[in-house]
Design a protein around this nucleic acid. Sequence first.
DNA 1: CGGACAGTTGATTCATGTCAAATCACGTGG
DNA 2: CCACGTGATTTGACATGAATCAACTGTCCG
Lengths: 253, 253
Amino acid sequence: MLGTGLDLPYISRMSSALDTRPANFCETCAVRNRAICADLDTAEIAALNSIGRRRALKAGEQLMWEGDEAILVANVIDGMLKLATHTSDGKEQILGLIYPADFVGRPFGETSPYGVEALSDSLVCVFERKDFERFAREHPRLEHKLLQRTLGELDRTRRWMLLLGRMSAEQKIATFLLELADRLPSQTQSHGGEGETLIYLSLSRQQLADVLGLTIETVSRQLNGLRKSGIIEIPGRRELRILDRDALEARAA
Amino acid sequence: MLGTGLDLPYISRMSSALDTRPANFCETCAVRNRAICADLDTAEIAALNSIGRRRALKAGEQLMWEGDEAILVANVIDGMLKLATHTSDGKEQILGLIYPADFVGRPFGETSPYGVEALSDSLVCVFERKDFERFAREHPRLEHKLLQRTLGELDRTRRWMLLLGRMSAEQKIATFLLELADRLPSQTQSHGGEGETLIYLSLSRQQLADVLGLTIETVSRQLNGLRKSGIIEIPGRRELRILDRDALEARAA
DNA sequence: CGGACAGTTGATTCATGTCAAATCACGTGG
DNA sequence: CCACGTGATTTGACATGAATCAACTGTCCG
């Protein structure tokens, strides 16, 4: 379908002549139909593909640093990342969690107002910011997608403000668990009447605390409170099963 | 520069065949060069002008309701508005303050995730959301501006998360006063060596509390604490003078 | 003059933070 | 396979900042 050129090897800007990377990564991309590149046509995809490259990140690896020049932007293909800032006295606040198909980075901006770090091993599709911006300006369809995604992100971020500003620790935890259950590809087994959901947590207790504006001790206590009430189960440090979704929703208020 | 019509009275779209609506309100618009319409050319401006109308809002008047269908979007020409949501138990959280040249509303969305209310008497330029969307899709330059503004708003919103999640009451108040001093057209008189800034507050104590995720009593105490420390002066309920900006910055941490 | 409402102030409570210690989970090397 | 060490998590005791509850004081406006 794609005519000439596409089967030629892609040469990355750094690589040697031996680099024989396949022409079009996007074709087989897991988020092809959900990311901002979704409604580009084949030729556009090819062009975009030629300015981007894939990059694997280990859990804990930093993709961008708070305050640094914003050089990159990226689409997340797989994994989970966090955006975070710090107060001057070193407390961290996680500003958002990034899931597959989400876009990260600050196009049309000089410096990155937050750091970006992989929470689990991840795969991203990165672009030089300048390249991406040029491409975006030439392709209004892409910019439109980006706008839509940004507007959605803004809505979600604002909802989080309500959580941070006005909810109790218990409400915060309950709300967050429900959001995780919705956004993660979590396993739901309906047995009996209730649907039980198993969540794999990519976040440590500390990171949970940093998302919710709490301390690690409070997170631990609230979680175990919910466990003792029979609302959740904690089979392992990084696993969590929702036993009674209704009760959890009630606590989310 | 735009010839005829500018001196004719404005007649809304509901009007009769006698409608001799002036071609271009935008020409004289106070935010002409700062709002998202800034870099449209004359013809585009005229087209945009034809689908928008001006509307004056009294302080306290609601422009959109939380959860309602998102029918309108608007540019703010003058005044100050708030975006707000509520918890199920009725506590309010202000999600953002809107200043002149800012854009409000949720294009490409079905319902408005927050309410919009004027804090002071305001003047806005409203569009039917559908009309605006159509126009935006046909004018990538406008969409680009909107994208830029949305990205900026997202950055600001995320900075607010740090305040809500991790700052003490005193830090919140100090940070907010500094932000007001920067964003408001406030009067600065440098006398002696220090620059003193007079801020007119469009917000009641309750609204201040709702921005910062505090209670009204805490706001009052913190404000009077700063006053007793000689950092600010409170000449009237709605006025506030920053006497010692450095000290305020220190408290904002 | 007399509400009525916004803001202040004080006393008290309570949720969450802080500090400290115990426990757990897991990888390493013997 | 097990003891050990290390870092993560839990648990407990206690401190404290901010919320809550309750007067009180302005101030504006009829």
